[in-house]
Nucleic acid binder design. Structure first.
Lengths: 212, 212
DNA sequence: TAGATTGTTAATCGATTAACAATC
DNA sequence: TAGATTGTTAATCGATTAACAATC
């Protein structure tokens, strides 16, 4: 079922950015846009925009450009914003809380349906209308609810154990906020956030800037 | 002051990962490592490791490999872990809270010295030993404290205003947690986190996986 | 139709990998 | 010394950019 040419991760990582800019254009009531105009707004080349979009189909029209609304919908579809991915948060600490309360995920196709922790003080509390359950109840929960994605915000020492459990339960996606690189094989797709890494890159850039 | 060849951002983004793995090796009491062994642990090529490290100097020794402790220190120095970057958090919401409470930043060279918000209910409260101040007090604060980095966790509608203020106050680095792409010119270095983008990439991968 | 702009092929650029001489 | 492994150059691969024919 995969006769198509493989699309590079570099292209994929730009899609959410297109999605954002298109959403902004809709808010500005702009109906059509050329790759040239969009390239100026996004500070990338028009050529790259056309190449990127053409990986997925000819969404534009010669002499006209792209219909903003249509392109927005197409990019959304490519990213799966219509899939309604069901997510659970594992680890009800500060980061778990922040994510549970973040309002932007829902309209991008991600729904938070459960939060898990092991701290007795947290079990039973409610975060953004979701009751915190004990991690031991995760097995039962997964039997009764389809779960697409587990969001990992547990302390580092628990990561490997929890990740393996998630895999065993058949959850196929992990959004990993821990510093640990997970090695779970091909069955699970992992997207890492690695906040410290990001901050350290900023530190480097800053150091470079100052030595200019 | 820049006769050296420019080091690509791809290399820089791998450095924190080297730093993490070296830290793990130290914990395991491993004293030396070859690029080959490290490549197996990190799942990248030995060639890439040697190329990356050689951008900054010959830290290894033929026939021996790399001294773990020394390499760890060198990579740390490159990233500026010894700089003690002074950071403020702008936006004391859930994400601001999570970051203020994150314990891993300090030992990577980042110190949180201030938190700012505009919500009267938050002003004066204390988060991880740091008192939340009103954003109007930021000017004064910057006069009295050197600030390297502003961490932006404000609601989206305030981003542009706050970012401009940060720039005017002479802060040179922004760690941007908002979805907005900042356009502040060359004076300020920006590192984006864009959590939604990351989650959407995971959604895409998941969708691809399922259609395999 | 003429002008504009895409879709797509070709050229360029940069990053990764391979190979091996240098050397510990 | 012989074996191991780096540092570094050369080859390959992939991603970005340029160019232009197709076509709206």
């Amino acid at each position: 079922m995969s006769g198509e040419k493989k699309i590079s991760i570099a292209v994929i990582r730009r899609l959410p950015r297109y999605f954002r800019y298109l959403s902004d254009l809709i808010k500005l009531d702009i109906k059509r846009i050329s790759s040239k105009e969009l390239s100026q707004r996004m500070d990338i080349t028009a050529s790259q925009i056309r190449q990127d979009l053409n990986c997925f189909g000819g969404f534009g029209q010669q002499g006209y450009g792209y219909n903003v609304e249509l392109l927005y919908e197409e990019v959304g579809k490519i990213l799966g914003t219509d899939k309604g991915f069901k997510c659970i948060i594992v680890g009800a600490g500060n980061m778990g809380n922040a994510i549970a309360n973040y309002e932007n995920f829902k309209n991008r196709g991600f729904e938070m349906i459960g939060i898990f922790d092991v701290d007795p003080k947290k079990i039973g509390t409610v975060i953004n209308n979701i009751k915190v359950l004990h991690l031991d109840d995760l097995d039962d929960f997964v039997k009764n609810h389809h779960v697409d994605i587990a969001i990992l915000t547990v302390p580092n020492k628990h990561v490997v154990g929890v990740a393996n459990k998630i895999k065993e339960l058949g959850i196929k996606g992990i959004w990993n906020f821990t510093p640990t690189d997970l090695k779970l094989g091909d069955e699970v797709v992992v997207e890492n956030v690695h906040l410290s890494d990001s901050l350290m890159v900023l530190g480097y850039k800053l150091k470079e800037k100052e030595s200019e």
